[in-house]
Design a protein around this nucleic acid. Structure first.
Lengths: 266, 266
DNA sequence: AAATAATAGTTACATTATGCAACATAAATA
DNA sequence: TATTTATGTTGCATAATGTAACTATTATTT
C-alpha cells in the first residue's frame, strides 16, 4: 500500500526545517534568547541540526548567535542605546510631566536625546498629533503609532545623538509652526542657563526656543550644575524647564530672574 | 473531468486531487506548514503524488515549496517589520551583489525598503562611505558604524515604509552628488519596467535614477511580473537591476532593449 | 592565577530522507 | 481500442540529519 520507503512508522514525522525555524523565532521574540540544548531536546533532533538551523537564521539576519544558543537580532550596540537605561525612572516621570502639557491636535517638536525619547514614549497613545523631530529613534517609534503624523528633519546624522544636525536640520526648522517643543541639553549651569556640547546643537535649540509657541527643556537631575561649553542663545525665551527633582536653590533663583518656570515631575 | 462518484464507500477510498488540494491548503493556513510524509500518510497515497499536488499548487502561487513539504505563501504587503523576514536569503544575496559594486569612499544612496536594508547590512563594515537615505532604519543602523557618514533626507514619514517621502525628500535629493544609488520598487512589469505604488515614490526614484552616477534597482524574485500602478519615469537611465534569480525571458528581453543590465546575485 | 572539568563549537564523514525523472499501471474518456 | 489522466514504482542524485573525534570556550576548583 504505502509505497516509497519503509519506515516512517516510528514517531511523528520529523518536523521540517521551516517549522523549527518558525518556532525558534517565536521563542526568540517571547523569551529573548534560545538555547541549543533546549531546542534540540524540544524538537528531538541533534544539537548539530539546531546549530545548522541557527546558523541559517543568523545568515538571514534573523538572530544573533551566542555561545550556547542565540539572541534577538540587534543591529548594533551603540553608545546611545546604552545611555538609555541610565536614570530611566527619572526620565519616565519627566516624560509624563511633559506629555501633560500636550493636547490632542498639537504640533510637537521633539529634540534628540534620551530624555526626549521618554517624552515620545509618554505621547505614544495620543491622538492626532504631529511630531517633528531630528531624532531617528523618535521618528521610528512615533511613526509606528496610528493617528500620529511624523516629520523627520533631515541632515547629517550625528552618531552620538543618532539625530540630524547641521545646516539642513537648521533650515528645516523654519518650515514648521510648532505649538510646543521639548528640548534636551548638556547641562543646567549654576547661573540658570541650559548649555550645550556643540555649536550646532546650541544653535538648533536656540532657534527652536524662539520659534515654538512654547519651548521646554527636559533635564534629569544628573545635569544640575554641569557645565558644558556652549550657551544656548535666547534661552530666556523658553517657557520652562522640566526636571525630576527640585534643582539647588541658587539655580532656581537664577531661573526665576530669567523667566523660564521650573516644573518638577511627579 | 470529474465523473459522478458513488463510491464513497468509506474514507479508505482515495481522495480525489481537488479534495486533497483543499485539505492541504486548509492545513497550511492553520499550521503554516505541511509535510509531505504526513500528507502521504494521511491521504494514503504515495509521496510522489503529494509532491505533484504541492508542485501544482506552488505553480498557482498558493504555497511555497520547501524541502520535505511546503509553507504558506504570503503575497500581501505585510507591515514593514513583518515583511523583514520574508525572502530573507534572497534579499541577503542581493545585498551582497549590490555591495560588490561599491568601493570605499563612494557616496551611496539607499532607498527605503527591506531589500535596500539588506544592502545596508552588506555595506556595514565598509570604510569611509557616505550614505544618503530616506529610510529611518537604514540611517539608524548605518550611523552606528564607524567610518560611515550618514545623511538623512528629511520629510514627512510614511509609516508603511518608515521612510521620508514628499516634497522635502524630493528637494533634498538635489543637494547631493551620488556615486551609486540602490533603489527599491513595487514590481518588475512584464514589459521590463520597474513600477511603484505611489506617485511620490515613483518621482523620487525617477529623480535619483537621473541624478546618480549609477542607479540600480534591487528586486527580489517575488516582484517579477507584478504590476503596480505607477511607472517610474526615466527608468531606462538606470544602470541595471539586481535580482536573486533570472527573471522570465520576456522581461530580460525587454530590459535589454531599454538599456539596464540584469545582475543575478549569487 | 593556574589547573581542571564541563559545556559548546568544528570538522569530516556516515546515514537517512527527500527530490526528481523516467517508466509502469489503472481507471476514465473519446 | 486508443488516449488521456492520475497515480504508483524504481533508481539515482541531492539535501538534511546524525555521529564521533577533536578543539575551543566557559565555569569551577584549587
Amino acid at each position: 500500500m504505502i509505497a516509497d520507503n519503509n519506515m516512517s512508522d516510528s514517531q511523528s514525522a520529523r518536523a521540517l526545517a521551516p517549522r523549527r525555524h518558525g518556532e525558534i523565532l517565536r521563542r526568540l521574540v517571547s523569551d529573548g534568547t534560545v538555547s541549543i540544548t533546549e531546542l534540540a531536546d524540544h524538537f528531538d533532533v541533534s544539537r548539530q541540526t539546531i546549530r545548522r538551523d541557527l546558523k541559517h537564521l543568523a545568515e538571514r539576519g534573523q538572530l544573533d548567535l551566542v555561545h550556547g544558543g542565540a539572541t534577538l537580532f540587534e543591529p548594533t550596540e551603540a553608545a546611545f542605546t546604552e545611555r538609555r537605561g541610565e536614570n530611566a525612572s527619572a526620565k519616565a516621570s519627566i516624560g509624563r510631566a511633559a506629555a501633560a502639557l500636550v493636547r490632542d491636535g498639537m504640533v510637537v517638536f521633539l529634540d534628540s536625546g534620551t530624555t526626549t525619547l521618554a517624552v515620545a514614549h509618554a505621547l505614544a497613545d495620543r491622538k492626532n498629533l504631529t511630531i517633528c523631530t531630528t531624532s531617528l529613534s523618535i521618528a521610528l517609534q512615533m511613526c509606528r503609532q496610528p493617528q500620529v503624523r511624523v516629520h523627520m528633519l533631515g541632515g547629517e546624522i550625528d552618531p552620538a545623538e543618532e539625530a540630524a544636525v547641521g545646516i539642513d536640520a537648521l533650515e528645516a526648522i523654519s518650515h514648521f509652526r510648532v505649538d510646543v517643543a521639548f528640548l534636551g541639553g548638556g547641562g543646567l549651569s549654576p547661573d540658570g542657563e541650559v548649555t550645550d556640547f556643540t555649536r550646532n546643537g546650541a544653535e538648533q535649540r536656540s532657534r527652536m526656543t524662539a520659534t515654538a509657541g512654547k519651548a521646554y527643556f527636559v533635564l534629569d537631575s544628573s545635569k544640575f550644575g554641569r557645565l558644558t561649553p556652549l550657551r544656548i542663545p535666547r534661552f530666556e525665551l523658553a517657557a520652562g524647564v522640566i526636571v525630576d527633582r527640585r534643582p539647588p536653590e541658587a539655580i532656581c533663583e537664577a531661573l526665576k530672574r530669567k523667566g523660564p518656570i521650573v516644573i518638577v515631575a511627579e
